[in-house]
Amino acid sequence: MRHSRLQVHELHACADPECLGKVHDLLARMWETSPEVSELDRAMFETAVIEIAANIVEHGSQEGSILCNLILEVYPDRLDARFKDDGRIAQVDLDAAAMPDDFAESGRGLAMAKAAVDVLTYHRHNNDNYWTLSRTRTAS
């Protein structure tokens, strides 16, 4: 049985570096209205959401600005995030995403996001990118 949604928060913004602060602010508002979400779930979910947002900002740029839509949802049993952006196609292989060597200075973002949530998907449709993330909530 699917649980009913407790909270929904939405952001529509240009995917520029300042956008990351707006995503943090949106998450902060979500935690304020959902204080029952455990500290571990918050930290893991926020880490994954920010990694995907940073990936969109860093790799999606092209001529003109990218528009990004983010929906965050709190359910009794899980936390969901859905991104949609009109940037370039993301050249990612989520199945192959793995932690690099300890001394690597980059290449951890997708592996971190994958490890921090239970579901991470990406697909391209009609010139838009769609990312979905879902973390099963731990008992608080």
Partner: peptide, 16 residues
């Protein structure tokens, strides 16, 4: 209060 993968990369750079 928050470090992402780029921040971790900066710490690794500093360590090296």
């Amino acid at each position: 209060d928050f470090v992402d993968s780029t921040g971790l990369g900066a710490l690794v750079f500093g360590l090296k």
